[in-house]
């Protein structure tokens, strides 16, 4: 049997350890899908695979045990999944009966967000889908995740681009009863950005993470929600060389800034990627070009807004496997 493995991989299948068997990777932007799609996924697993589905760390599904000979049939059968992808993300895939057109750019994952979670500062599912709409289909290997608040339950700090929801808390002293619930909570659970002085709460914007917990704690709605903002962390990664947490890049930027930098990121990669390699991870490109080049190109034509903070320099840190300093 002759199989073009490059094509197979681009089509969101995988070369597995079992010869002639493959696994299909189903994209689920924002980790959210309806039960019709769930049913279809399970039907495909039953009909073509082993009746098993694996949930991936990126919130996609992987259907193992599919004979490579049946990929075309499977592609036709998953047409509704691609139609739904078009619908939720606004992508125009042109054809939806030939399977996924690309797999390099990974599924955009998201925590459950404000459709369910009280802490979330925005609708993470919607943002993940909108980002998917901008960056997919694409072959560049990029991992993006969005989190509803700085708790970062989705581990956006392990992504190339991690987005954390922020809110500007607005304080109305006329409604404050001085219970200090907000102050105590911020001190114990967050950054201690609040101080109680003269029976009034004072917020240190420099220290404030924009998590919005003060708003949740306040019994009288003295704290209410102001504008929504996002902070962006970049170039976190796992891997065999230099695992590291993402570092802060932007704070207090608007939603359209987030979308625009995701778009610009691909132009940056396109410009700097080392095409002599089979693939190059974006983090390695940034390591090569240096942060300032990355920053200037990604922020090109971006209106950051008044509140925005941009990292002046980044020390990514992490650790090198070959440095045995801890042992």
């Amino acid at each position: 049997m002759s199989v073009d493995t490059k094509k197979l991989v681009k089509n969101a299948y995988r070369v597995t350890k079992e010869r002639y068997l493959t696994a299909l990777r189903v994209r689920v932007p924002g980790g959210h899908l309806d039960t019709k799609q769930m049913t279809l996924i399970s039907r495909i697993a039953d009909r073509y695979g082993r009746g098993e589905v694996h949930i991936t760390t990126r919130q996609g599904f992987e259907i193992p045990g599919i004979p490579m000979s049946r990929m075309e049939e499977v592609n036709r059968e998953i047409t509704p999944l691609l139609d739904a992808l078009q619908k939720t993300t606004g992508i125009d895939l042109k054809v939806t009966f030939e399977g996924y057109p690309a797999a390099g750019t990974r599924n955009v994952s998201a925590c459950i967000g404000n459709r369910v979670c009280p802490f979330a500062n925005y609708d993470t599912t919607r943002l993940a889908q909108d980002i998917e709409g901008i960056i997919y289909p694409n072959d560049f290997h990029v991992k993006i995740a969005v989190s509803g608040c700085p708790n970062d339950c989705i581990k956006a700090h392990m992504q190339d681009v991690g987005i954390l929801g922020q809110v500007e808390p607005l304080y109305d002293s006329k409604r404050c009863i001085g219970c200090k619930a907000c102050v105590d909570n911020c001190r114990k659970r967050v950054t201690g950005a609040l101080k109680f002085h003269n029976f009034t709460v004072q917020r240190d914007h420099e220290k404030c993470t924009g998590c919005g917990e003060c708003i949740l704690k306040c019994p009288t709605a003295a704290w209410t929600r102001g504008e929504k903002y996002y902070s962006v962390v970049i170039m976190g990664r796992t891997g065999k060389k230099n695992p590291r947490l993402a570092a802060p890049f932007l704070r207090w930027v608007a939603r359209d800034v987030v979308l625009k930098i995701c778009e610009n990121l691909y132009s940056y990669i396109d410009k700097h990627i080392d095409r002599s390699l089979p693939k190059e991870h974006v983090g390695n490109i940034v390591d090569r070009t240096g942060y300032p080049v990355f920053r200037d190109e990604v922020l090109q034509n971006v209106d950051l807004g008044e509140r925005a903070m941009v990292a002046k320099h980044i020390n990514f840190g992490g650790y090198e496997y070959h440095s045995n300093a801890s042992f």
């Binding site: 404000n114 009280p118 500062n121 925005y122 919005g212 708003i215 709605a221 209410t224």
Partner: peptide
Amino acid sequence: TKKDKGMYSDTDLIT
């Protein structure tokens, strides 16, 4: 209705 002034994001406060 105070639009988006609910305790949770994207919720309103009726007051």
